[in-house]
């Protein structure tokens, strides 16, 4: 019990430290670094979304890029075409993303395994095709430009948070949504609902036999995942001010899968660790010029061969053993 308490508090202390670090980060970071870290936060949200349906619920959804794109394009279009402010646009975009998710989830979730993966992949290709071809609305391959900033938030004692000038303000905005997402996901996966997602992944027949409506559980996970992806997309649109059809493609899903698996599937921290690590490594590798994506690819293959359960997964599996050995070692030494 005492050990448990210790573990519990260390975990929370670590989390608190990380948040403090994240909060003071803009004070010490260069503009370049801050830009990359802001993108890391957005990719983390997308990876968290993917992890819920793929990692926890075991359904290989290859269509998440479409929901990211749905969030981004709907937010962007509502702001550019109708002049709505960001918050209203985001809320409408998320509502539409959820509706789309239910409409796509209902037919595709009837399939299982590889069939589900390909069905969702097809949906994603359809979505991207429509975004490219519906030129009058989306500006096609040119992309949607000049998406306005988040409107300035007035402060109670004068002054305002200005999203046009301040990179830090945008960073904090994305960070707050990331932290919210982490808290929500943490609560979901530790709840009975989250356990029923895990149960569906492990054995669908058994899950049904103990009263879990597996189709409903999958649809719920699929929809929540799409909602978070849409949120990440909306933030992406307003942060960069420019979106192109490529961000709706299944390539986006593949990137997120990479982050999740390298970080550790079905763990809360895994997708975040994966997103930050791979984005930062990717940036560092650009020093190698044209070779950098080849090296990146080699690293990806090596990581799945040598760390199949991901960094966080490996940590969770081996750390207790190492810890035990270290403790025993101490006893011997004493």
């Amino acid at each position: 019990m005492e050990n448990l308490l210790k573990l519990y508090t260390t975990k929370h202390l670590l989390f608190a430290l990380l948040i403090v670090a994240a909060l003071v980060f803009p004070l010490v970071a260069s503009t370049y670094t801050l830009r990359i870290i802001t993108m890391c936060c957005i990719w983390s949200m997308l990876a968290i979304a993917l992890n819920l349906i793929v990692g926890y619920t075991g359904q290989g959804n290859l269509g998440l890029g479409a929901f990211f794109g749905m969030g981004a394009y709907t937010t962007g279009l509502l702001m550019v075409k109708l002049g709505l402010n960001f918050w209203l646009a985001l809320i409408i975009a998320l509502a539409l993303t959820v509706i789309l998710a239910v409409l796509i989830g209902l037919p595709t979730l009837r399939t299982k395994g590889a069939y589900f993966a390909i069905a969702t992949l097809c949906f994603n290709i359809i979505f991207t095709t429509v975004v490219i071809q519906w030129d009058a609305l989306t500006k096609g391959q040119t992309g949607l430009m000049n998406i306005p900033n988040v409107p300035a938030i007035p402060l109670p004692f004068g002054g305002q948070i200005d999203f046009h000038e301040s990179l830090a303000a945008n960073y904090y905005l994305v960070l707050i949504f990331l932290i919210l997402t982490i808290v929500v996901i943490y609560r979901i996966v530790n709840s009975l609902t989250g356990k029923s997602f895990l149960a569906v992944r492990q054995d669908e027949d058994l899950a049904e036999a103990i009263g879990i409506n597996t189709f409903r559980a999958k649809l719920l996970s699929f929809t929540v995942s799409a909602f978070i992806a849409g949120l990440a997309g909306g933030l992406y649109a307003v942060y960069l001010g420019f979106i192109a059809p490529a961000i709706t493609s299944y390539g986006i899903t593949f990137t997120a899968i990479l982050y999740v698996v390298v970080g550790g599937a079905a763990t809360v921290a895994g997708p975040i660790v994966g997103s930050f690590l791979l984005t930062v490594i990717g940036e560092q590798l650009t020093a190698f010029g044209t070779l950098h994506l080849i090296i990146y690819g080699v690293l990806v293959v090596l990581s799945i061969i040598y760390l199949p359960m991901g960094l966080v997964g490996a940590y969770q599996m081996f750390w207790p053993q190492i810890w035990q050995k270290m403790k025993r070692g101490k006893v011997h030494a004493a």
């Binding site: 793929v54 290989g60 395994g113 590889a114 593949f254 899968i257 990479l258 698996v261 390298v262 599937a265 044209t290 070779l291 994506l293 080849i294 990146y296 690819g297 080699v298 690293l299 990806v300 293959v301 990581s303 799945i304 199949p308």
Partner: peptide, 19 residues
């Protein structure tokens, strides 16, 4: 390894091959 493992290998290979 999971069903995702071969997908990850494929993603890595696509990067290596195309570039």
């Amino acid at each position: 390894s999971t069903p995702l493992s071969s997908l990850i290998v494929s993603i890595g290979l696509i990067m290596i091959f195309n570039n």
